[in-house]
Design a protein around this nucleic acid. Structure first.
Lengths: 374, 374
DNA sequence: CTGTTAGCGCATTCAG
DNA sequence: CTGAATGCGCTAACAG
């Protein structure tokens, strides 16, 4: 093991390089930035820089030039497929236009969100993208007074350029699909004169109403979709969860314990849906241990005699891969990242002043079993 | 819609604040940093700052103080449970000690890794944590000469403080478990005198050998574990995949098409395993459409007559939730994040010079079915 | 307690 | 083409 690491070569400044090369610091600066330098001196400078491994302090450069070629992205969490899709989109246009991206994760804490926004504001970044969850008064205040341009992705706001998804429309489409499925099942049962009573009851696991997109628009749309086909969502069959699998698991367990006749369990996100699937798996093992054992624990959708279906939102590929896919909604997450970055760069580079609000559409994704049937 | 956003209030400097408050800039600086200021002037300054919404430029402060209370973390990808566990550990100790964390994702491109390391080196961060994949010559050069302290998590290196996992040991344990399972199955078949021939063949989907931890140590350990119980891994039954589900899917499909007698399919990561599960699901639907249909597409582990088991590494909770769990290995990812951050802060704050190499252990996680049996 | 002064490392004038 | 001088916004050291 070596005795110590790093800092073997003293941290050099442009001045020292200039001295070693026998030129002025300005010449070195020009050399670095493509200004006029004679071939002769170029050689000198190059030699010294190679020898010393000198790297100019971006820090100081930015203080001077006010240009970092960097944008900061504030995200609610790191371990999320939807968010990584957004950041992939952002990164794509950023790197194409010579920018780099720095991420700050708030771990679903809106307070931290503002903290990191302020950090970025006073840190050398040219712009900020906020992948929004809730927009509090603090957020609004920040957006109004920010020294650097900000675009908000995933939430509507009138205080900044924003790109959001048609959560209401998506919710409504899902509500209709769920209602249609229920009616269809009922008809089948009737035709086949099955004994088992089929309630056709639907349950919903939502999220905090403070999240206007996922918590409000998506759920309102869902209810509207159900209602349009005459199905009602009973309040005893709704729960509120965090944006985690564990929380979805708990909510689903509670729902299952208190309601024996749920036919379809819709969740506000695919992550929550994953927790719900886990709950069904656990619950069915508890309830019908024999059956579960015989099927190798794979009968997660079978609870007692009635089949419970789970639906989500977000089109999570991991979930689709390992379960075959549940009914869900595909949002253009990557697209929203792309558009968001483009918007931001237009403001940064072109000084675009006209505010933009952009709403992106969606696409229903049918689940495994329905696909098979078609 | 408002006409434009932000920058409504001109960007103020400490000097302007001082002028408005009728004091010196130094007084304002002291006010901001808790130095001596008379009550009277405090009032003045407070008033002006409140009115203007002034926020000091962290940028300039850091240029001066060489202290950012910030650490940069370079990660290979954003959408990963293991990595988010590491960053959660880092964040935990960082925030407890008054630091903030910035992330840079390289999207599995080792070239970008060095780019971002250099970015952080010249930006105001006090230290860097690299969640390592491959350590190239470029990496070593950087680690040797970095102006700021670096700790590497997830890979062994002698050029920096590092914290890594016992991948060899974990691989070996998994190899042994797989071999034991195979022998057990063979015995069962023999006892019950079943017709179906059971090959007991094992396949492995690994990753690039450039990744010394996952690609080399883990696989070498796995082979050693198998061998210790007399099982061999045939070269025709190995594939190399990227660290993605899609890649795991492709590798598994290829394996299944070219080898009809695989009994157990071990994967270098749970993410790859998820792709393999998807492949089994797809493949079995293709091969035995009737069975698959009858079981609602849930018979992903049944291929023809022989049961194929999938194993992974990483103890992915999402996978466990929706599938019930496959045999895998739990690494102390969060712990490595915690220790890594502690190490880094000790170097930053205490100037700790003694190099540290830390190896963390693991824990086997049995899959769903085995748990049931016990 | 306070204001003045001198840089942090760099890029950009402006004379030469 | 080039070097000396100036200042980005802030804090540390000093003298009041």
């Amino acid at each position: 093991m070596p005795e110590r690491f790093g800092r073997t070569e003293k941290h050099m400044t442009i001045k020292e390089i200039a001295q070693l090369a026998g030129v002025s610091s300005a010449a070195v600066s020009r050399y670095l930035n493509g200004g006029y330098v004679s071939e002769e001196k170029k050689e000198q400078i190059k030699r010294v820089i190679d020898e010393t491994g000198y790297q100019p302090s971006a820090q100081a450069r930015i203080l001077r030039t006010k240009k970092a070629c960097l944008v900061g992205v504030v995200v609610p969490k790191i371990n999320s497929e939807s968010i990584s899709r957004v950041t992939a989109g952002i990164e794509q246009v950023l790197s194409a236009r010579g920018y780099q991206m720095l991420l700050a994760s708030t771990d679903n804490d809106p307070g931290k969100e503002v903290t990191y926004l302020k950090l970025f504001e006073n840190y050398p970044v040219d712009g900020i993208i906020l992948i929004g969850t809730v927009i509090t008064a603090e957020h609004r205040k920040f957006l109004k007074n920010s020294k650097v341009p900000v675009v908000v992705v995933g939430q509507y706001t009138k205080y900044a350029n924003c790109i959001y998804h048609d959560d209401y429309g998506a919710g409504k489409a899902m509500g209709k699909a769920v209602a249609a499925y229920l009616k269809d099942e009922m008809n089948h049962r009737e035709e086949e004169q099955e004994e088992t009573q089929y309630s056709g009851k639907v349950a919903y696991i939502g999220v905090t109403k403070e999240d206007k997109a996922v918590g409000v628009a998506r759920e309102d749309g869902f209810r509207a979709g159900l209602k349009s086909l005459g199905v009602e969502l009973e309040e005893t069959c709704t729960r509120e969860a965090e944006f985690t699998m564990e929380s979805g698991y708990r909510a689903a367990m509670d729902l299952l314990e208190k309601n024996r006749d749920i036919s379809i369990l819709s969740c506000a996100t695919d992550t929550i849906a994953a927790g719900a699937i886990e709950a069904l798996l656990t619950y069915s093992r508890k309830q019908v241990p024999e059956e579960a054992k015989n099927s190798g624990g794979r009968m997660q959708y079978i609870l007692g005699n009635s089949k419970i279906r789970v639906t989500g939102f977000g089109d999570n590929q991991f979930l689709k891969a390992v379960t075959g896919g549940i009914p869900t909604v595909h949002f253009g997450y990557k697209t929203s990242g792309i558009r968001g970055a483009e918007l931001l760069l237009d403001v940064i580079e072109l000084g675009e002043k006209i505010p933009v609000e952009m709403k992106l559409g969606f696409r229903m994704v049918r689940g495994q079993e329905e696909e098979d049937a078609s």
